[in-house]
C-alpha cells in the first residue's frame, strides 16, 4: 500500500490539517461576531417596531405634540429635523470638502498645516455635549442668533466637520497621482486639476463620508438640548431664525415621561427617524451609482 510519503499532495499531513482547522475556527468565530452584531440590531428594531407600530399612522405624522397620547404627533419635530439637516448640509459640506481639498491638494506640508491636521483628527473625538457648550456660547449668545434653527445647524456643522474633512481627505488620497500629472502636463493649474479631475474622481468616497456625518447629526440630541432646542413646539419654523425642535429631542422628551403610551410614541418616532435616515442613505446610493458610471 502506498502511504503518505509517496504522495506529497495528499491531505494527511497533520501539520497542514491543524492549520486548516485553525483557519476554519477563526472564520467561524468572525462569522459569529458579525452575526451577533446584526442579531442585536434586529432585536432592537423588532422591539421598537412592536412598541411603535400602534401609533404610527398619518395622524401621527401630521399632528403637533400633545398631552394626550392619542392626539400627539411628530410633525413639528420631523419638519425641524428636515430643516436642520438641510441647513447642516448647506453649511458643512462646502466647508468640509473645501478644507479637505485645501489640505490634500494645495497646502504645503509645513508645521502649521500639520498642526491643523492634528487638531482636526482630535476634534473628531470630542464629545458632542462640548460642541453644545461652544454653540451656546458662540452662536446663541455671542452672535445673538438666539435659540434658532441656524444656531443648531451651525453647532451641528462644527460637530460633523471633522468627520467630513477626514473622510473627504481619504477619498481624495485615493485618486491616483497619474491623473493629476496628466492634467498638469496639459497646462492645467492646480485649481483646474482639482476641480475637473480630483473632485469628480473622489466624489463617491466624499459622498459616503458626508452621509455618515449627516446620519450622525440627525441622531444627536445633546448639543441641541444644550443650545435650547425646545421640547414642546406647536408650530412649524418659517425660516432659519425660528425656534425649533427635532426628532431626537421629541423622542427624549417622550421617553422621559412616566406614561407607557408616551414610551410607545417614542418608539413610533424612532421608526420615523430611521425611515428618514434610510431615505437619505438610499438617495446617496442612487447618486453614487449615477456618478460612478
Amino acid at each position: 500500500m502506498n502511504q503518505s510519503s509517496d504522495n506529497a499532495l495528499n491531505t494527511s499531513d497533520r501539520h497542514l490539517q491543524r492549520r486548516h482547522r485553525k483557519a476554519s475556527l477563526f472564520s467561524s468565530f468572525c462569522a459569529l461576531i458579525t452575526f451577533m452584531g446584526v442579531a442585536l440590531l434586529a432585536l432592537l428594531l423588532y422591539q421598537v417596531c412592536v412598541d411603535g407600530i400602534k401609533w404610527l399612522d398619518i395622524q401621527f405624522l401630521t399632528s403637533f405634540p400633545s398631552r394626550f397620547p392619542a392626539r400627539a404627533g411628530i410633525l413639528s419635530a420631523l419638519v425641524g429635523t428636515l430643516w436642520l439637516i438641510s441647513l447642516i448640509a448647506l453649511i458643512a459640506i462646502p466647508i468640509g470638502v473645501a478644507t479637505a481639498l485645501y489640505l490634500e491638494e494645495f497646502s504645503k506640508k509645513n508645521r502649521l498645516n500639520r498642526l491643523i491636521e492634528l487638531n482636526i483628527s482630535n476634534l473628531a473625538g470630542v464629545p458632542s455635549i462640548v460642541y453644545g457648550i461652544i454653540g451656546l456660547a458662540l452662536f446663541v449668545r455671542g452672535l445673538n442668533l438666539e435659540r434658532s434653527l441656524i444656531s443648531g445647524a451651525l453647532t451641528m456643522s462644527l460637530l460633523i466637520l471633522p468627520v467630513i474633512i477626514i473622510a473627504s481627505r481619504e477619498a481624495i488620497k485615493t485618486v491616483p497621482m497619474s491623473i493629476r500629472h496628466a492634467a498638469f502636463a496639459l497646462g492645467a493649474t492646480r485649481w483646474q486639476t482639482a476641480w475637473a479631475h480630483v473632485l469628480p474622481a473622489s466624489f463617491p468616497g466624499i459622498l459616503t463620508g458626508v452621509i455618515l456625518a449627516l446620519s450622525r447629526a440627525i441622531g444627536e440630541t445633546a448639543p441641541l438640548i444644550m443650545i435650547g432646542g425646545l421640547t414642546y413646539v406647536a408650530f412649524l419654523p418659517d425660516g432659519p431664525m425660528d425656534s425649533f425642535t427635532a426628532m431626537p429631542i421629541q423622542i427624549y422628551n417622550w421617553v422621559a415621561r412616566p406614561q407607557h403610551e408616551f414610551h410607545q410614541l417614542a418608539a413610533s418616532a424612532i421608526i420615523v427617524l430611521l425611515a428618514v435616515l434610510l431615505i437619505m442613505n438610499a438617495a446617496a446610493i442612487v447618486i453614487r451609482h449615477k456618478t460612478e458610471r
Binding site: 497619474s178 491623473i179 500629472h181 496628466a182 492634467a183 498638469f184 502636463a185 496639459l186 497646462g187 474622481a201
Partner: peptide, 15 residues
C-alpha cells in the same frame, strides 16, 4: 507645460 507636452510611462487617461 502648454508648449511642452508629456506622455507618461503608464497610460493615464482621465476616467
Amino acid at each position: 507645460r502648454r508648449h511642452i507636452g508629456m506622455v507618461f510611462q503608464k497610460p493615464n487617461p482621465f476616467p
